[in-house]
Computed example of a mutant assay.
Amino acid sequence: MSSDSRLNRAYTNAKTVPFDDNSKFILFSDCHRGDNSFADEFANNRNIYFHALKYYYIEGFQYCELGDGDELWENINFESIFQAHKNIYKLLKQFHLENRLHMIWGNHDMVYKDPEYVKKNLSSYFEPIDEKDKELFEGITYNEAIILKHSESNQEIFLTHGHQADWWNYTFWRWGRFLVRVLWKPLQVWGIADPTSPAKNYTELKKVERRLKKWILSNNLILTVVGHTHRPRFPEPGQIPLFNDGSCVHPRSITGIEIENGKISLIKWEIATNEDGTLRVVRILLEGPQKLVDYIEKK
Rank of each mutant, 00 (worst) to 15 (best):
I192A: 01
I192P: 08
I192E: 09
A193M: 14
A193R: 06
A193I: 15
D194E: 08
D194N: 15
D194R: 12
P195I: 14
P195F: 05
P195C: 01
P195L: 03
P195G: 03
T196R: 14
T196I: 04
T196D: 07
T196F: 12
T196G: 13
T196K: 12
S197P: 01
S197T: 02
S197C: 11
S197W: 02
P198V: 12
P198C: 12
A199F: 07
A199W: 01
A199S: 15
K200C: 03
K200F: 15
K200P: 00
N201I: 03
N201Y: 14
Y202H: 01
Y202Q: 11
Y202V: 00
Y202T: 11
T203C: 07
T203Y: 09
T203S: 14
T203D: 00
E204N: 13
E204V: 08
E204H: 09
E204R: 15
L205E: 11
L205Q: 05
K206Q: 04
K206H: 15
K207H: 05
K207N: 13
K207I: 12
V208T: 13
V208F: 06
V208D: 03
E209G: 03
E209N: 15
R210Y: 08
R210D: 15
R211Q: 11
R211A: 04
R211I: 08
L212K: 01
L212R: 00
L212E: 05
L212P: 03
L212Y: 00
K213E: 08
K213P: 10
K213Q: 15
K213C: 13
K214H: 10
K214F: 01
K214Y: 08
K214T: 04
K214G: 06
W215I: 09
I216W: 00
I216R: 11
I216L: 06
I216P: 07
L217C: 05
L217V: 07
L217N: 10
L217G: 10
S218F: 12
S218V: 14
S218G: 02
N219A: 04
N219W: 07
N219L: 03
N220W: 13
N220G: 08
N220R: 12
L221N: 14
L221Q: 14
L221E: 11
L221H: 15
L221Y: 15
L221A: 00
